[in-house]
């Protein structure tokens, strides 16, 4: 037998052997018998049930998380808008504000000091000056006689009466409430107001300015009317430009 012939025979018998073995293995897959008794089966069942319960719990937790994320996503923008709106309202003075601050009382001068009967009128110029001073010294929110001072607040004399936001200021003592950023600011404002020139000038109008001690909690009421904006128009966003 030639060498080549032997080699090819060997090769082919090897392949046949391989195929036989594989076929044998595939056909003769040993039958796996279940030899567990009732007790073992029960234990196995228990284990599987625990696993199932655990998996269900996990699924539930994940679903809940998913739902939370969903609602968060939905409410996120709405909440942001609401927050912005509230912030803007607060800035515009449409909400009651409570914070550290100072209360200033403007009252009539005692009658004994006066020579004869006089009108007690608060001049708008003086009030404006006082207001400017307050703003200069760090006032954040101010109300005069229960009227909130906002950006569009007008203090002026109409028919002999000083009016703020269209309401008369003739009931003395008049209370000016000032809210500052911090209590330290309130103290500083208090000190400055004690030596304020504007306060002194009220004396000319037969009025007395009394600055009360700074408090931790002073409440300034909200602006009562709705803010009317005239001559302003929102920009029409029609060209897709921002």
């Amino acid at each position: 037998m030639g060498k080549k012939k032997t080699l090819s025979f060997t090769f082919i018998t090897m392949i046949i052997g391989l195929m036989l073995a594989v076929q044998f293995r595939s056909v003769q897959t040993p039958e796996v018998r279940d030899t567990r008794d009732t007790w073992q089966l029960r234990e196995d069942l228990n284990e599987e049930m625990e696993l199932k319960a655990r998996l269900i719990k996990e699924i539930r937790a994940n679903e809940q998380k998913l739902a939370e994320y969903e609602t968060e996503r939905k409410q996120g923008q709405e909440q942001a808008l609401k927050n912005t709106l509230n912030e803007l309202k607060e800035q515009a003075g449409l909400t009651d504000v409570t914070g550290p601050g100072v209360t200033i009382q403007i009252s009539k001068l005692d009658d004994e000091l006066l020579l004869d009967h006089v009108d007690y009128t608060l001049s708008p110029d003086l009030l404006r000056r006082l207001l400017n001073e307050l703003n200069m010294y760090g006032a954040k929110n101010v109300s005069i006689g229960g009227q909130r001072v906002i950006n569009t607040t007008v203090i002026r004399e109409i028919a002999g009466e000083t009016k703020i936001n269209g309401r008369s200021l003739k009931n003395f003592p008049l209370e000016i409430r000032v809210i500052t950023e911090t209590f330290e600011d309130a103290q500083e404002l208090y000190n400055r107001m004690l030596v304020s020139k504007a306060a002194e000038e009220f004396f000319i109008d037969n009025l007395k300015v009394n600055v009360l001690d700074p408090e931790m909690s002073v409440t300034v009421p909200a602006y009562e009317d709705s803010i009317r904006i005239r001559n302003i128009e929102s920009v029409k966003a029609d060209k897709g430009e921002s």
Partner: peptide
């Protein structure tokens, strides 16, 4: 070769 194939 046959034996080797089967064993393999």
């Amino acid at each position: 070769g046959l034996v080797i194939g089967i064993l393999l």
